[in-house]
Design a protein around this nucleic acid. Sequence first.
DNA 1: ATGAAAGCGCTAACAT
DNA 2: ATGTTAGCGCTTTCAT
Lengths: 332, 332
Amino acid sequence: MELRHQVAVTLAEVAEAAGVGESTVSRVLRSHGSFSDKTRERVMAAVERLGYVPNRIAGTLASAGSRLVAFVIPSLSNIVFPDVLRGASAVLEENRHQAVFAVTDYDPQKEEALVASMLAWRPAAVVLAGCEHTEGTAKMLRASGCRIVELLDLDGEALDIAVGFSNRAAGHASAEFLLTRGYRRIGYVGHDLIRDTRAGKRFKSFCETLGMHDVPLVDREIVAGASSVENGQVGLEQLLARTPALDAVYFSNDDMALGGYFHCLARGIHIPSRLALFGYNGLDIGRVTPQPLSTVRTPRVATGRVAAQLIVENAPSQIVDLGFELIEGATA
Amino acid sequence: MELRHQVAVTLAEVAEAAGVGESTVSRVLRSHGSFSDKTRERVMAAVERLGYVPNRIAGTLASAGSRLVAFVIPSLSNIVFPDVLRGASAVLEENRHQAVFAVTDYDPQKEEALVASMLAWRPAAVVLAGCEHTEGTAKMLRASGCRIVELLDLDGEALDIAVGFSNRAAGHASAEFLLTRGYRRIGYVGHDLIRDTRAGKRFKSFCETLGMHDVPLVDREIVAGASSVENGQVGLEQLLARTPALDAVYFSNDDMALGGYFHCLARGIHIPSRLALFGYNGLDIGRVTPQPLSTVRTPRVATGRVAAQLIVENAPSQIVDLGFELIEGATA
DNA sequence: ATGAAAGCGCTAACAT
DNA sequence: ATGTTAGCGCTTTCAT
């Protein structure tokens, strides 16, 4: 690994080798401005021969126009965010932009620190989850002059661009669905609702909708820790131990609901006649379980894609509601 | 959004406002070199007042030492890679490094293009999956002078640092396990083995081990498309339609195995007495299914963490074998 | 069509 | 302890 210390080839060296000026090399490399075919060939030959790799750090500094897009996301364990990144990175790569990311663990203070850190890269845009941020985060972002994209939560004030759907509407639709199916003794199994504000909004709206129909939520179980299949299992087990006479359970998301589903399978609790289960997210796996999971499918990849598209075309401030889809499934 | 066009505060302006020289501001901000307490206070006050955010683009260019770490990964759908990123990003954030990423879709040509693109950011390290790369990729990487970290596959030549385990050993262990349990009519359900070379290595070694015991693989079903729960379902269904008399099936990974498991649950195929199932990865969800999935658990998060640690401490070239764990489970 | 030269905002000697 | 200055490698006027 002696090569490690070698010095990178610079544009000046390419210019020298090609016998042209630096600006000519720059023009050729970016196909910008004018130059003769012969010049281009000589430059490209030199680039090839020297193995020149342009230094984008220098380029960005000189042109004051960054093609970096910073993602400050709550988690990588929750499949939602890899899905969003997937949609976004495809579009960004096509448009010669570059994704940078950092993980907040659902901590607003950490989000603030990471946004500050990201801003130091002078990104073209900062992409965040939701519209709940600290004062400091919002202030920095507004002062930065870069585009701000908030994803997956339209229930609040957007700073610039927002792409996603309404979690309140999702919670509402879920409650209406269960009520329409005739369920009246409904419980809830969820994870930390303070940190995951979007899950909190769904739950709140879910309860309000039940209330409007004079069907109070019978019981709830909030597990410690992040959402996971295992926690869904444990949560449902504890909920049922305390309140056996439920006819339906709403989960904070599909991971949790799958845990509940497995619990029922293992215990021989018949679904949905004895107990109905309803999730959120519409994960692929929920379509393949012996009984497809009843849930709300969210446009995660599309959210990333649309967000990236708006960024690369420097679209005006706007709110894009991508909606969601209620999946009837067979568990409710 | 009129703020968008505002010009960022520079270090020079902070220096001016604080009535000190530029280098003093730089020293204070990086807590490097010496300065009086009084000076520090004045500088910090100015920073606060002006809302100064250091420009890391300029800083990196000037100091020729990048804290960027570039991840060029095959996929974000396969949970393996979000897991690796998760482990890595935690360590990188603690050490003031920054993760950048791009997705290859398991395409070596695309990997080459993305590596070239990443190198333009002059990262401290480039992190790749596996040790199979195009000539061009390897050449560029070696010529770049930056650290190279290859993950999740120790069965090959490492360019610089490699962290992970042996897929061949995993395939071998899986076969030995099934044989020890007495299974003799074994099939395989997998996805594209050309693109996912690590799955290919596991399968090859699996077959070789069976062969060493004179137990040929009875049949295999390679589904079109990426690995997924749904494809695992479909794959097993087709395999059994063609070759019903199997007593065990090895899957390319847990996603596929879960699909197979659901298929059996739905069809009332008793597990493991009628058919045994064996996966790969050790996903959390496999621990919570009514019968825990028999599989090999891989150290995905740890792989990311160790890789990041070696990068931040600029460790010497080395191979780190993190091993894997065979999970007996209840499906085989 | 091409080159010269002035930055971009910072860091790192080198002075003082 | 602090200021001055010369770059880092590129892009971008502005000449020619």
